[in-house]
Design a protein around this nucleic acid. Sequence first.
DNA 1: TGGGATTTGTTCGTATGTATT
DNA 2: GAATACATACGAACAAATCCC
Lengths: 237, 237
Amino acid sequence: MPGAPSHSTNRTAAIADALRNAIIERAISPGTRLPEDLIGKQFGVSRTIVRAAIAQLVSEGLVDQRPNRSATVIKPSWEDANDTFDLRIAVEDLVVSRLAGTLTPDQVQVLRDHVELEEQARKAGDEPKSIRLAGEFHSLLAEMTDSPILIRYMRELASRCCLILSLFSRPHSSDCAVAEHRELIDLLESNDVEIARRAMNHHLSAVVNRALIKPAAKKPDSIADILAIYAPTAGDA
Amino acid sequence: MPGAPSHSTNRTAAIADALRNAIIERAISPGTRLPEDLIGKQFGVSRTIVRAAIAQLVSEGLVDQRPNRSATVIKPSWEDANDTFDLRIAVEDLVVSRLAGTLTPDQVQVLRDHVELEEQARKAGDEPKSIRLAGEFHSLLAEMTDSPILIRYMRELASRCCLILSLFSRPHSSDCAVAEHRELIDLLESNDVEIARRAMNHHLSAVVNRALIKPAAKKPDSIADILAIYAPTAGDA
DNA sequence: TGGGATTTGTTCGTATGTATT
DNA sequence: GAATACATACGAACAAATCCC
Protein backbone atom coordinates (compact mmCIF):
# COMPACT_ATOMS: atom_id res chain seq x y z
CA MET A 1 0.00 0.00 0.00
CA PRO A 2 2.37 2.69 -1.17
CA GLY A 3 1.53 6.30 -0.54
CA ALA A 4 -0.49 5.48 2.51
CA PRO A 5 0.72 6.95 5.77
CA SER A 6 -0.55 4.14 7.95
CA HIS A 7 -0.59 6.38 11.01
CA SER A 8 -3.24 8.42 9.33
CA THR A 9 -6.17 10.25 10.73
CA ASN A 10 -9.19 8.07 10.43
CA ARG A 11 -11.38 6.09 8.15
CA THR A 12 -10.35 8.72 5.67
CA ALA A 13 -7.08 6.96 5.07
CA ALA A 14 -8.79 3.63 4.54
CA ILE A 15 -11.04 5.10 1.87
CA ALA A 16 -8.10 6.82 0.24
CA ASP A 17 -6.16 3.56 0.20
CA ALA A 18 -9.05 1.68 -1.34
CA LEU A 19 -9.54 4.27 -4.04
CA ARG A 20 -5.81 4.52 -4.68
CA ASN A 21 -5.47 0.79 -5.21
CA ALA A 22 -8.51 0.74 -7.44
CA ILE A 23 -7.06 3.55 -9.49
CA ILE A 24 -3.57 2.13 -9.71
CA GLU A 25 -4.79 -1.25 -10.82
CA ARG A 26 -7.07 0.50 -13.23
CA ALA A 27 -10.20 -1.00 -11.74
CA ILE A 28 -11.47 2.55 -12.07
CA SER A 29 -10.51 3.86 -15.47
CA PRO A 30 -8.94 7.27 -15.99
CA GLY A 31 -11.55 9.91 -16.55
CA THR A 32 -14.13 8.21 -14.37
CA ARG A 33 -16.07 10.54 -12.13
CA LEU A 34 -15.93 10.08 -8.39
CA PRO A 35 -19.12 11.57 -6.88
CA GLU A 36 -18.79 12.03 -3.17
CA ASP A 37 -22.07 10.61 -2.01
CA LEU A 38 -21.94 7.60 -4.31
CA ILE A 39 -18.57 6.62 -2.90
CA GLY A 40 -19.82 7.42 0.57
CA LYS A 41 -22.74 5.06 0.20
CA GLN A 42 -20.50 2.40 -1.28
CA PHE A 43 -18.17 2.48 1.72
CA GLY A 44 -20.79 3.36 4.30
CA VAL A 45 -19.31 6.69 5.31
CA SER A 46 -20.52 10.24 4.97
CA ARG A 47 -19.49 12.69 2.31
CA THR A 48 -17.14 14.42 4.71
CA ILE A 49 -14.88 11.42 4.88
CA VAL A 50 -14.97 10.86 1.16
CA ARG A 51 -14.21 14.50 0.63
CA ALA A 52 -11.07 14.27 2.70
CA ALA A 53 -10.00 11.05 1.02
CA ILE A 54 -10.43 12.57 -2.41
CA ALA A 55 -8.52 15.65 -1.33
CA GLN A 56 -5.68 13.34 -0.36
CA LEU A 57 -5.68 11.67 -3.75
CA VAL A 58 -5.75 15.04 -5.45
CA SER A 59 -2.68 16.01 -3.48
CA GLU A 60 -0.99 12.84 -4.64
CA GLY A 61 -1.80 13.72 -8.21
CA LEU A 62 -3.96 10.68 -8.89
CA VAL A 63 -7.24 12.59 -9.06
CA ASP A 64 -8.25 15.78 -10.78
CA GLN A 65 -10.61 18.23 -9.15
CA ARG A 66 -12.16 21.42 -10.43
CA PRO A 67 -14.52 23.79 -8.66
CA ASN A 68 -18.10 22.57 -8.49
CA ARG A 69 -17.29 19.54 -10.56
CA SER A 70 -16.99 15.90 -9.68
CA ALA A 71 -13.50 14.72 -9.05
CA THR A 72 -12.19 12.44 -11.78
CA VAL A 73 -9.39 9.93 -12.07
CA ILE A 74 -6.46 11.55 -13.87
CA LYS A 75 -5.91 10.73 -17.49
CA PRO A 76 -2.19 11.20 -18.00
CA SER A 77 -1.15 12.34 -21.43
CA TRP A 78 1.86 10.82 -23.09
CA GLU A 79 3.82 13.91 -22.12
CA ASP A 80 2.67 13.60 -18.51
CA ALA A 81 3.81 10.01 -18.53
CA ASN A 82 7.27 10.95 -19.71
CA ASP A 83 7.58 13.84 -17.28
CA THR A 84 6.58 11.63 -14.40
CA PHE A 85 9.12 8.99 -15.30
CA ASP A 86 11.86 11.55 -15.81
CA LEU A 87 11.16 12.89 -12.37
CA ARG A 88 11.12 9.45 -10.92
CA ILE A 89 14.46 8.62 -12.49
CA ALA A 90 15.92 11.73 -10.91
CA VAL A 91 14.54 10.94 -7.46
CA GLU A 92 15.55 7.33 -7.64
CA ASP A 93 19.06 8.33 -8.58
CA LEU A 94 19.18 10.16 -5.28
CA VAL A 95 17.86 7.13 -3.43
CA VAL A 96 20.49 4.87 -4.93
CA SER A 97 23.25 7.33 -4.17
CA ARG A 98 22.35 7.19 -0.52
CA LEU A 99 21.79 3.49 -0.36
CA ALA A 100 24.74 2.02 -2.23
CA GLY A 101 27.05 0.24 0.18
CA THR A 102 25.02 1.07 3.25
CA LEU A 103 22.45 -1.71 3.23
CA THR A 104 22.44 -4.08 6.17
CA PRO A 105 22.15 -7.82 5.54
CA ASP A 106 18.63 -7.68 6.96
CA GLN A 107 17.62 -5.02 4.48
CA VAL A 108 19.12 -6.98 1.61
CA GLN A 109 17.10 -9.97 2.69
CA VAL A 110 13.90 -7.94 2.77
CA LEU A 111 14.57 -6.84 -0.79
CA ARG A 112 15.33 -10.36 -1.97
CA ASP A 113 12.15 -11.66 -0.36
CA HIS A 114 10.16 -9.00 -2.11
CA VAL A 115 11.63 -9.87 -5.48
CA GLU A 116 10.62 -13.44 -4.78
CA LEU A 117 7.01 -12.24 -4.51
CA GLU A 118 7.40 -10.39 -7.77
CA GLU A 119 8.58 -13.55 -9.47
CA GLN A 120 5.60 -15.50 -8.16
CA ALA A 121 3.17 -12.88 -9.43
CA ARG A 122 4.87 -12.90 -12.79
CA LYS A 123 4.70 -16.68 -13.02
CA ALA A 124 1.03 -16.56 -12.07
CA GLY A 125 0.50 -14.17 -14.95
CA ASP A 126 -1.06 -11.52 -12.73
CA GLU A 127 -0.06 -8.42 -14.63
CA PRO A 128 -1.59 -5.70 -12.41
CA LYS A 129 -0.13 -7.31 -9.33
CA SER A 130 3.24 -7.58 -11.02
CA ILE A 131 3.22 -3.92 -11.81
CA ARG A 132 2.15 -3.01 -8.29
CA LEU A 133 4.82 -5.18 -6.68
CA ALA A 134 7.48 -3.82 -9.00
CA GLY A 135 6.50 -0.35 -7.87
CA GLU A 136 6.58 -1.38 -4.24
CA PHE A 137 10.13 -2.65 -4.67
CA HIS A 138 11.19 0.88 -5.40
CA SER A 139 9.16 2.30 -2.53
CA LEU A 140 10.93 -0.22 -0.33
CA LEU A 141 14.27 1.13 -1.46
CA ALA A 142 13.17 4.66 -0.65
CA GLU A 143 12.09 3.61 2.83
CA MET A 144 15.56 2.31 3.53
CA THR A 145 16.98 5.80 3.14
CA ASP A 146 15.14 6.78 6.31
CA SER A 147 14.43 10.14 4.79
CA PRO A 148 10.75 11.09 5.19
CA ILE A 149 10.93 13.43 2.25
CA LEU A 150 12.50 10.99 -0.16
CA ILE A 151 10.05 8.35 0.99
CA ARG A 152 7.06 10.54 0.39
CA TYR A 153 8.03 11.67 -3.06
CA MET A 154 9.09 8.23 -4.13
CA ARG A 155 5.79 6.72 -3.03
CA GLU A 156 3.84 9.36 -4.84
CA LEU A 157 5.83 9.00 -8.02
CA ALA A 158 5.71 5.22 -7.82
CA SER A 159 1.90 5.34 -7.55
CA ARG A 160 1.62 7.52 -10.58
CA CYS A 161 4.10 5.44 -12.53
CA CYS A 162 2.06 2.34 -11.71
CA LEU A 163 -1.03 3.95 -13.15
CA ILE A 164 0.88 5.05 -16.20
CA LEU A 165 2.28 1.60 -16.78
CA SER A 166 -1.17 0.09 -16.39
CA LEU A 167 -2.38 2.56 -18.97
CA PHE A 168 0.31 2.50 -21.59
CA SER A 169 2.16 -0.73 -21.23
CA ARG A 170 1.57 -3.71 -23.42
CA PRO A 171 1.15 -7.19 -21.95
CA HIS A 172 4.25 -8.79 -20.42
CA SER A 173 6.17 -5.57 -20.50
CA SER A 174 7.37 -6.16 -16.98
CA ASP A 175 8.69 -9.63 -17.70
CA CYS A 176 12.32 -8.75 -17.31
CA ALA A 177 11.92 -6.58 -14.24
CA VAL A 178 12.61 -9.40 -11.83
CA ALA A 179 16.08 -10.14 -13.15
CA GLU A 180 16.89 -6.46 -13.19
CA HIS A 181 15.76 -6.00 -9.62
CA ARG A 182 18.01 -8.86 -8.53
CA GLU A 183 20.94 -7.28 -10.27
CA LEU A 184 20.18 -3.96 -8.61
CA ILE A 185 20.26 -5.56 -5.19
CA ASP A 186 23.65 -7.08 -5.94
CA LEU A 187 25.02 -3.72 -7.01
CA LEU A 188 23.57 -1.92 -4.00
CA GLU A 189 25.37 -4.35 -1.75
CA SER A 190 28.66 -3.25 -3.23
CA ASN A 191 30.23 0.06 -2.39
CA ASP A 192 30.35 1.42 -5.88
CA VAL A 193 27.84 4.23 -5.93
CA GLU A 194 28.44 5.15 -9.54
CA ILE A 195 27.87 1.68 -10.90
CA ALA A 196 24.70 1.30 -8.85
CA ARG A 197 23.41 4.64 -10.07
CA ARG A 198 24.09 3.76 -13.67
CA ALA A 199 22.35 0.44 -13.21
CA MET A 200 19.25 2.02 -11.72
CA ASN A 201 19.16 4.61 -14.43
CA HIS A 202 19.49 1.92 -17.04
CA HIS A 203 16.82 -0.17 -15.37
CA LEU A 204 14.28 2.62 -15.30
CA SER A 205 15.05 3.73 -18.81
CA ALA A 206 14.47 0.15 -19.88
CA VAL A 207 11.11 0.10 -18.14
CA VAL A 208 10.14 3.28 -19.91
CA ASN A 209 11.32 2.03 -23.28
CA ARG A 210 9.52 -1.25 -22.91
CA ALA A 211 6.30 0.38 -21.85
CA LEU A 212 6.07 3.88 -23.18
CA ILE A 213 6.41 3.40 -26.89
CA LYS A 214 5.31 6.62 -28.44
CA PRO A 215 2.07 5.98 -30.26
CA ALA A 216 2.77 5.87 -34.01
CA ALA A 217 0.08 8.39 -34.71
CA LYS A 218 -1.26 10.80 -32.18
CA LYS A 219 -4.82 9.85 -31.57
CA PRO A 220 -6.80 12.82 -30.36
CA ASP A 221 -9.35 11.84 -27.77
CA SER A 222 -11.58 14.86 -27.69
CA ILE A 223 -13.53 16.92 -30.14
CA ALA A 224 -11.39 19.90 -29.25
CA ASP A 225 -8.23 18.06 -30.20
CA ILE A 226 -9.69 17.04 -33.53
CA LEU A 227 -10.90 20.51 -34.31
CA ALA A 228 -7.56 21.97 -33.33
CA ILE A 229 -6.00 20.15 -36.26
CA TYR A 230 -8.34 21.78 -38.72
CA ALA A 231 -8.29 25.17 -37.11
CA PRO A 232 -7.34 27.99 -39.51
CA THR A 233 -4.86 29.43 -37.02
CA ALA A 234 -2.86 27.49 -34.45
CA GLY A 235 -4.66 29.25 -31.62
CA ASP A 236 -4.85 27.39 -28.38
CA ALA A 237 -7.90 28.86 -26.73
CA MET B 1 2.34 33.13 -4.94
CA PRO B 2 4.11 29.86 -5.59
CA GLY B 3 2.28 26.63 -4.94
CA ALA B 4 -1.08 28.24 -5.33
CA PRO B 5 -3.26 26.86 -8.07
CA SER B 6 -5.11 30.09 -8.76
CA HIS B 7 -7.99 28.23 -10.40
CA SER B 8 -8.70 26.59 -7.11
CA THR B 9 -11.89 25.61 -5.44
CA ASN B 10 -12.92 28.42 -3.18
CA ARG B 11 -11.90 30.64 -0.37
CA THR B 12 -10.01 27.59 0.72
CA ALA B 13 -7.19 28.47 -1.63
CA ALA B 14 -7.02 32.01 -0.34
CA ILE B 15 -6.66 30.80 3.23
CA ALA B 16 -4.04 28.31 2.16
CA ASP B 17 -2.10 31.01 0.34
CA ALA B 18 -2.22 33.33 3.33
CA LEU B 19 -1.02 30.64 5.68
CA ARG B 20 1.64 29.49 3.24
CA ASN B 21 3.11 32.95 2.89
CA ALA B 22 3.03 33.46 6.63
CA ILE B 23 4.83 30.18 7.12
CA ILE B 24 7.40 30.75 4.41
CA GLU B 25 8.30 34.18 5.67
CA ARG B 26 8.39 32.75 9.16
CA ALA B 27 5.71 35.07 10.43
CA ILE B 28 4.41 31.89 12.02
CA SER B 29 7.32 30.03 13.55
CA PRO B 30 7.88 26.33 13.06
CA GLY B 31 6.16 24.30 15.73
CA THR B 32 3.34 26.78 16.14
CA ARG B 33 -0.06 25.20 16.49
CA LEU B 34 -2.76 26.05 13.98
CA PRO B 35 -6.15 25.50 15.67
CA GLU B 36 -8.93 25.36 13.12
CA ASP B 37 -11.29 27.43 15.18
CA LEU B 38 -8.88 30.26 15.78
CA ILE B 39 -7.83 30.54 12.15
CA GLY B 40 -11.44 30.38 11.05
CA LYS B 41 -12.35 33.30 13.27
CA GLN B 42 -9.28 35.20 12.13
CA PHE B 43 -10.27 34.90 8.49
CA GLY B 44 -14.02 34.93 9.00
CA VAL B 45 -14.69 31.49 7.61
CA SER B 46 -15.95 28.28 9.10
CA ARG B 47 -13.81 25.40 10.22
CA THR B 48 -14.62 23.44 7.11
CA ILE B 49 -12.70 25.89 4.96
CA VAL B 50 -9.78 26.06 7.32
CA ARG B 51 -9.70 22.32 7.47
CA ALA B 52 -9.37 22.04 3.72
CA ALA B 53 -6.72 24.72 3.59
CA ILE B 54 -4.68 22.99 6.24
CA ALA B 55 -5.06 19.69 4.44
CA GLN B 56 -3.60 21.38 1.39
CA LEU B 57 -0.60 22.64 3.33
CA VAL B 58 -0.11 19.21 4.83
CA SER B 59 0.00 17.78 1.33
CA GLU B 60 2.62 20.36 0.42
CA GLY B 61 4.68 19.30 3.38
CA LEU B 62 4.59 22.65 5.15
CA VAL B 63 2.34 21.53 7.98
CA ASP B 64 2.32 18.47 10.20
CA GLN B 65 -0.90 16.83 11.25
CA ARG B 66 -1.59 13.96 13.60
CA PRO B 67 -4.91 12.43 14.61
CA ASN B 68 -6.81 14.43 17.21
CA ARG B 69 -4.01 16.93 17.48
CA SER B 70 -3.72 20.47 16.27
CA ALA B 71 -1.88 20.90 13.02
CA THR B 72 1.53 22.52 13.48
CA VAL B 73 3.98 24.29 11.24
CA ILE B 74 6.73 21.84 10.29
CA LYS B 75 10.02 22.10 12.07
CA PRO B 76 12.53 20.74 9.61
CA SER B 77 15.53 19.03 11.10
CA TRP B 78 18.95 19.63 9.65
CA GLU B 79 18.66 16.29 7.89
CA ASP B 80 15.27 17.25 6.47
CA ALA B 81 16.79 20.46 5.20
CA ASN B 82 19.53 18.61 3.37
CA ASP B 83 17.17 16.02 1.94
CA THR B 84 14.88 18.71 0.64
CA PHE B 85 17.69 20.57 -1.05
CA ASP B 86 19.13 17.41 -2.54
CA LEU B 87 15.75 16.65 -4.01
CA ARG B 88 15.41 20.15 -5.28
CA ILE B 89 18.78 20.01 -6.95
CA ALA B 90 17.72 16.85 -8.72
CA VAL B 91 14.43 18.30 -9.92
CA GLU B 92 16.01 21.53 -10.98
CA ASP B 93 18.60 19.66 -12.98
CA LEU B 94 15.70 18.23 -14.93
CA VAL B 95 14.20 21.66 -15.43
CA VAL B 96 17.44 23.09 -16.75
CA SER B 97 17.93 20.15 -19.08
CA ARG B 98 14.62 20.90 -20.70
CA LEU B 99 15.03 24.62 -20.79
CA ALA B 100 18.54 25.18 -22.05
CA GLY B 101 18.49 26.63 -25.51
CA THR B 102 14.71 26.62 -25.79
CA LEU B 103 13.84 29.89 -24.11
CA THR B 104 12.13 32.52 -26.22
CA PRO B 105 13.30 36.15 -26.02
CA ASP B 106 10.08 36.96 -24.18
CA GLN B 107 10.77 34.35 -21.55
CA VAL B 108 14.32 35.58 -21.11
CA GLN B 109 12.98 39.06 -20.57
CA VAL B 110 10.53 37.83 -17.94
CA LEU B 111 13.41 36.23 -16.10
CA ARG B 112 15.59 39.32 -16.30
CA ASP B 113 12.75 41.47 -15.03
CA HIS B 114 12.29 39.17 -12.11
CA VAL B 115 15.96 39.30 -11.20
CA GLU B 116 15.64 43.06 -11.25
CA LEU B 117 13.00 42.76 -8.54
CA GLU B 118 15.32 40.53 -6.58
CA GLU B 119 18.05 43.12 -6.75
CA GLN B 120 15.71 45.82 -5.51
CA ALA B 121 14.63 43.71 -2.57
CA ARG B 122 18.23 42.97 -1.75
CA LYS B 123 19.17 46.64 -1.89
CA ALA B 124 16.22 47.46 0.35
CA GLY B 125 17.57 44.95 2.83
CA ASP B 126 14.34 43.00 2.94
CA GLU B 127 15.69 39.57 3.70
CA PRO B 128 12.45 37.54 3.78
CA LYS B 129 11.31 39.09 0.55
CA SER B 130 14.68 38.40 -1.02
CA ILE B 131 14.44 34.78 -0.11
CA ARG B 132 10.90 34.53 -1.39
CA LEU B 133 11.74 36.20 -4.70
CA ALA B 134 14.80 34.01 -5.14
CA GLY B 135 12.54 31.01 -4.71
CA GLU B 136 10.05 32.39 -7.17
CA PHE B 137 12.78 32.76 -9.77
CA HIS B 138 13.16 29.02 -9.75
CA SER B 139 9.41 28.44 -9.83
CA LEU B 140 9.35 30.71 -12.85
CA LEU B 141 11.91 28.52 -14.56
CA ALA B 142 9.82 25.45 -13.85
CA GLU B 143 6.74 27.09 -15.31
CA MET B 144 8.57 27.62 -18.56
CA THR B 145 8.91 23.89 -19.04
CA ASP B 146 5.14 23.72 -19.51
CA SER B 147 5.13 20.46 -17.62
CA PRO B 148 2.40 20.44 -14.96
CA ILE B 149 4.21 17.81 -12.97
CA LEU B 150 7.58 19.54 -12.95
CA ILE B 151 5.85 22.78 -12.07
CA ARG B 152 4.01 21.27 -9.14
CA TYR B 153 7.00 19.57 -7.60
CA MET B 154 9.25 22.55 -8.13
CA ARG B 155 6.78 24.89 -6.44
CA GLU B 156 6.41 22.58 -3.52
CA LEU B 157 10.14 22.13 -3.09
CA ALA B 158 10.77 25.83 -3.53
CA SER B 159 8.28 26.62 -0.77
CA ARG B 160 9.95 24.23 1.61
CA CYS B 161 13.38 25.46 0.68
CA CYS B 162 12.26 29.01 1.40
CA LEU B 163 11.15 28.01 4.85
CA ILE B 164 14.39 26.18 5.44
CA LEU B 165 16.46 29.13 4.33
CA SER B 166 14.44 31.44 6.57
CA LEU B 167 15.13 29.05 9.40
CA PHE B 168 18.78 28.20 8.98
CA SER B 169 20.34 30.96 7.00
CA ARG B 170 22.32 33.73 8.49
CA PRO B 171 21.76 37.36 7.52
CA HIS B 172 22.80 38.37 4.00
CA SER B 173 23.28 34.80 2.94
CA SER B 174 21.41 35.49 -0.29
CA ASP B 175 23.56 38.44 -1.25
CA CYS B 176 25.23 36.77 -4.16
CA ALA B 177 22.12 35.11 -5.55
CA VAL B 178 21.31 37.94 -7.91
CA ALA B 179 24.56 37.70 -9.84
CA GLU B 180 24.24 33.95 -10.02
CA HIS B 181 20.72 34.17 -11.35
CA ARG B 182 21.87 36.53 -14.08
CA GLU B 183 24.60 34.14 -15.07
CA LEU B 184 22.11 31.29 -15.16
CA ILE B 185 19.90 33.18 -17.55
CA ASP B 186 22.84 33.81 -19.87
CA LEU B 187 23.71 30.14 -19.88
CA LEU B 188 20.13 29.06 -20.44
CA GLU B 189 20.02 31.24 -23.51
CA SER B 190 22.87 29.26 -24.99
CA ASN B 191 22.40 25.79 -26.38
CA ASP B 192 24.85 24.05 -24.13
CA VAL B 193 22.75 21.92 -21.85
CA GLU B 194 25.66 20.48 -19.94
CA ILE B 195 27.16 23.82 -19.02
CA ALA B 196 23.78 25.14 -17.92
CA ARG B 197 23.19 22.07 -15.80
CA ARG B 198 26.56 22.36 -14.15
CA ALA B 199 25.93 26.03 -13.47
CA MET B 200 22.58 25.38 -11.84
CA ASN B 201 24.01 22.59 -9.78
CA HIS B 202 26.82 24.83 -8.70
CA HIS B 203 24.44 27.66 -7.92
CA LEU B 204 22.22 25.54 -5.70
CA SER B 205 25.14 23.92 -3.96
CA ALA B 206 26.43 27.38 -3.24
CA VAL B 207 23.10 28.40 -1.75
CA VAL B 208 23.16 25.34 0.46
CA ASN B 209 26.72 25.91 1.52
CA ARG B 210 26.12 29.54 2.31
CA ALA B 211 23.01 28.83 4.32
CA LEU B 212 23.11 25.37 5.74
CA ILE B 213 26.23 25.37 7.79
CA LYS B 214 26.01 22.34 9.98
CA PRO B 215 25.57 23.57 13.54
CA ALA B 216 28.84 23.10 15.42
CA ALA B 217 27.11 21.35 18.26
CA LYS B 218 23.74 19.77 18.03
CA LYS B 219 21.45 21.81 20.18
CA PRO B 220 18.51 19.74 21.39
CA ASP B 221 15.37 21.78 21.63
CA SER B 222 13.09 19.58 23.64
CA ILE B 223 13.12 17.90 27.00
CA ALA B 224 12.99 14.56 25.28
CA ASP B 225 16.15 15.31 23.34
CA ILE B 226 17.96 16.33 26.46
CA LEU B 227 16.84 13.29 28.37
CA ALA B 228 17.82 11.06 25.49
CA ILE B 229 21.44 12.04 26.04
CA TYR B 230 21.33 10.88 29.63
CA ALA B 231 19.22 7.82 29.01
CA PRO B 232 20.83 4.61 30.31
CA THR B 233 20.05 2.77 27.08
CA ALA B 234 19.77 4.32 23.64
CA GLY B 235 16.09 3.41 23.46
CA ASP B 236 13.93 5.53 21.27
CA ALA B 237 10.53 5.17 22.85
C1' DT C 1 -4.59 11.55 39.70
C1' DG C 2 -8.61 13.92 38.10
C1' DG C 3 -11.64 17.16 36.02
C1' DG C 4 -12.67 20.99 33.10
C1' DA C 5 -11.60 23.59 28.96
C1' DT C 6 -10.10 23.26 24.42
C1' DT C 7 -9.87 21.14 19.91
C1' DT C 8 -10.67 17.87 16.57
C1' DG C 9 -13.82 14.20 14.18
C1' DT C 10 -18.03 13.62 12.16
C1' DT C 11 -22.73 14.07 10.53
C1' DC C 12 -26.35 16.25 8.15
C1' DG C 13 -29.17 20.23 6.44
C1' DT C 14 -29.32 24.00 3.30
C1' DA C 15 -27.55 26.91 -0.42
C1' DT C 16 -25.39 27.36 -4.77
C1' DG C 17 -23.67 26.11 -8.91
C1' DT C 18 -23.48 22.84 -13.15
C1' DA C 19 -25.21 19.65 -16.56
C1' DT C 20 -29.00 17.82 -19.15
C1' DT C 21 -33.40 17.04 -21.04
C1' DG D 1 -33.72 28.52 -23.84
C1' DA D 2 -35.75 27.05 -19.42
C1' DA D 3 -36.64 23.85 -15.87
C1' DT D 4 -35.22 19.93 -13.48
C1' DA D 5 -31.91 16.73 -11.49
C1' DC D 6 -27.70 16.29 -9.47
C1' DA D 7 -23.34 17.32 -7.10
C1' DT D 8 -20.59 20.13 -4.53
C1' DA D 9 -19.82 24.22 -1.07
C1' DC D 10 -20.45 25.55 3.30
C1' DG D 11 -21.94 25.91 8.06
C1' DA D 12 -23.82 24.66 12.72
C1' DA D 13 -24.07 21.24 16.17
C1' DC D 14 -22.90 17.08 18.72
C1' DA D 15 -19.57 13.49 20.26
C1' DA D 16 -15.02 12.07 21.44
C1' DA D 17 -10.33 12.78 22.32
C1' DT D 18 -6.61 15.54 24.22
C1' DC D 19 -4.33 18.96 26.91
C1' DC D 20 -3.59 21.63 30.98
C1' DC D 21 -4.10 22.92 35.59
